[in-house]
Design a protein around this nucleic acid. Structure first.
Lengths: 89, 89
DNA sequence: AGATATTTGTTCGTATGTATC
DNA sequence: GGATACATACGAACAAATATC
């Protein structure tokens, strides 16, 4: 369990953790991130709080969500690199 | 946006607006009235304030609320008209 | 086709803490 | 101190989309 600070919202702190994992590569592009239910269990938070976490990450553009399926790490920003230019598909 | 007066509670002023809409027929009997979330957005108020609005309308008997669904305009007072007397179901 | 489970979306109910008046 | 108002957070219920059996 993580130690929640009292000077910042929980949904913000959890979102930070997930964001760090994505940056670290723990969750790769296209892969599913923990469901709201998962977040509830892992962080001991309520569903609505977990929902807020995912909404924040979604609005930050680092995940996208499909109802009934879950949320997934957004693909990297292809800034001028045409697909197929890096390696074989 | 509406101009909030400083001499009366916001929840009271918003409740007045919704009540007027119901009287005017903007929201008909049985129809759903704006959710607390809707009120937050339209009037720029907090959820607790929006909740107070709906509670006031509920206690006035002009709406009824179903958890998980929303609030609805109360049916008119049918003084002596049994249900099913108007048409076939 | 139907039932079930999982998951997100949305709604209301409630409690707490903080700030302001 | 009380009333108002905001933000946060937990709980419960209803709904829709998806997948599996």
């Amino acid at each position: 369990m993580i130690e929640f600070r009292h000077d910042r919202p929980r949904w913000e702190q959890v979102a930070e953790v997930i964001r760090e994992r994505i940056v670290a590569g723990t969750y790769r592009p296209g892969a599913r991130v923990p469901s709201e239910n998962d977040l509830m269990q892992e962080f001991g938070i309520a569903r609505m709080t977990a929902h807020k976490v995912m909404r924040a990450l979604r609005e930050a553009g680092i995940v996208y969500t499909v109802r009934g399926l879950g949320s997934f790490v957004s693909p990297p920003e292809e800034a001028g690199a045409p697909e197929g230019s890096s390696s074989a598909e």
